[in-house]
Structure formats: C-alpha cells, structure tokens
C-alpha cells in the first residue's frame, strides 16, 4: 500500500521535474529540476530495497549535475531566460520521435511481466553492497573493467587537454606579461 502510493508519488514527481528540465527556458530552473529529478529517482531504488544503488545514484548524480551547474554558470546568465536558436525544427522533430519510438520498443518487454526475470536474483544471505559487488565482479566483470578503462582514458584525456600550462602558476606570472599575452 505505502509502496504503491510512494511509487506513484515519485513517478509523478520525476516526470514533472524532467518535463520542467526539458521545457523550461530558464537555465537555473532546468538544472535544478534535473538535479532534483535525479535525487527523486534514488527514491525508486530505496523502494525496491536497493539501498546501495539508491545512495550511489544520489552521490554520483548530485556531483555530476553540480558540474553541469558550473558550465551553466560559465556560459549563461542564469537569472535571465534563454532564447534558443533552432535552425531546423523538422530535424529536431524527426530525431525526437525516432528516439522516443526506440525507447518505447526497448521497454516493451515490461508489458509482459513474465518475460522479465533477474539474471542474478537477490539472496537474503547478502547485504546490498555485497550483492552489487558479487554481480559486478562475477558476471559483469568484463564490462565493468572496460568501463573502468574508458573512464581512466577520459580522465587522462581531460588532464592532458586542461593541463597544458599547469607547470606555470598564473599567480607567479607578472601582470605585464599577462597583459602582453592578452594583446597577442
């Protein structure tokens, strides 16, 4: 009973928040609703008893959306509404509808509940984090390691791209030199 009420409550909240994230013209509203939508999704994990995944969702997406905020802060005036430039409405429509259709097809399996089964069912012997660890390090070891290597590559790439002049500190460079660089 409680679970069902909570489920529908969270569903309405999530859909509403993501709708705001898509349709709002204000960057601040869009990002805030995105962040809170991500937090609300953690509620679903708690509902089905996957506490660990819920908290991971919370920690990971809180951090990720905060990085998004940083970009928003740098690129937009967050207190003003944004005027979007859409050059071809047709393309946006076609791509959007196709994506929506694909997603619907992907999740069609959910219509028939018998078709869904857990490949690694939860057992009462293990606590939540242990179960996640078991799944990650046995059945899904290879994708897990591949993802890890991908993230490592991304990190190194980021450092290389951003860190070209990391050996000189901006505070140590004299103002005149900095101005000269600006003029170039």
């Amino acid at each position: 009973m409680f679970e069902q009420i909570a489920f529908y409550f969270f569903s309405v909240l999530t859909i509403g928040l993501f709708l705001v994230a898509v349709f709002s013209k204000n960057v601040l509203y869009a990002m805030t609703s995105l962040a809170s939508g991500m937090v609300v999704i953690a509620g679903f994990f708690f509902l089905v008893g996957a506490d660990f995944l819920g908290v991971v969702q919370l920690i990971v997406y809180v951090g990720a959306v905060m990085a998004l905020y940083a970009f928003g802060m740098m690129f937009f005036n967050v207190t003003k509404n944004l005027k979007e430039k859409t050059t071809s409405t047709g393309w946006v429509l076609i791509v959007g509808v196709t994506a929506a259709l694909l997603m619907t097809l992907m999740f069609l399996g959910a219509i028939n509940p018998d078709a869904i089964y857990a490949s690694l069912p939860m057992s009462d012997k293990m606590t939540n984090p242990e179960a996640v660890g078991m799944a990650l390090f046995t059945k899904y070891l290879v994708p897990f390691e591949v993802a890890a290597v991908m993230l490592l590559i991304a990190m190194i790439g980021g450092i290389v791209l951003a860190g070209k002049k990391m050996d000189t500190s901006l505070t140590d460079i004299k103002d005149e030199v900095l101005q000269l660089k600006d003029e170039e």
Binding site: A35, V55, V62, P129
Partner: peptide, 16 residues
Amino acid sequence: NIGILFILGTMAAGLY
C-alpha cells in the same frame, strides 16, 4: 545498512 554512504550523500546534496 549503507548508513555512512547515505549520510555523506545527503550532506553532499546539502551543498546545493
């Protein structure tokens, strides 16, 4: 059973 992660996670959310 994930107490400490929960605390750290919510405190992190508090920085919003």
